[in-house]
Amino acid sequence: MRVPILKQGEYLIASIQSALTDQELSQLKDDLLDHAGRTRARGVVVDVTVLDVMDSFAARTLRSLAHMLDLLGAATVVVGIQPEVAFAMVQLGLTLEGVSTALDLEEGLAFLQAKAA
């Protein structure tokens, strides 16, 4: 299933709706890069609230997405990491180095707005 990408002003919002396969996650990365380039987005919010697992592949994909978007002049913020998921990520030794995070969509958008100001 493709993750819908919404445009809100200068920002793009991708809300993940269900567990994603590696392929779907890579597709999301490609779609967001494509959209960000075409819409000249200043920031991207990736909402991972429904993800019950953030494994090494997902973390790596989000990190490279953020780095690529940064090269296009767009900031990335990952929102909605669940407490259990955060616990498992730390145990696993995963970091989201270079990726901004926020509690939820609202906080994420506020973060991007503050950054643009």
């Binding site: 590696d22 019950d52 697992v53 953030m54 090494s56 669940q82 259990e84 498992a88």
Partner: peptide, 29 residues
């Protein structure tokens, strides 16, 4: 998903359920 379902059924804490599902993800990949 199977691992999560079994872990929940066995009464593992929600943190352990997530930890188990994450470990399965890594070995399956």
């Amino acid at each position: 998903r199977q691992g999560r379902a079994l872990a929940e059924q066995m009464g593992f804490s929600s943190t352990d359920v997530t930890v188990i599902a994450t470990a399965i993800s890594e070995v399956a990949r």
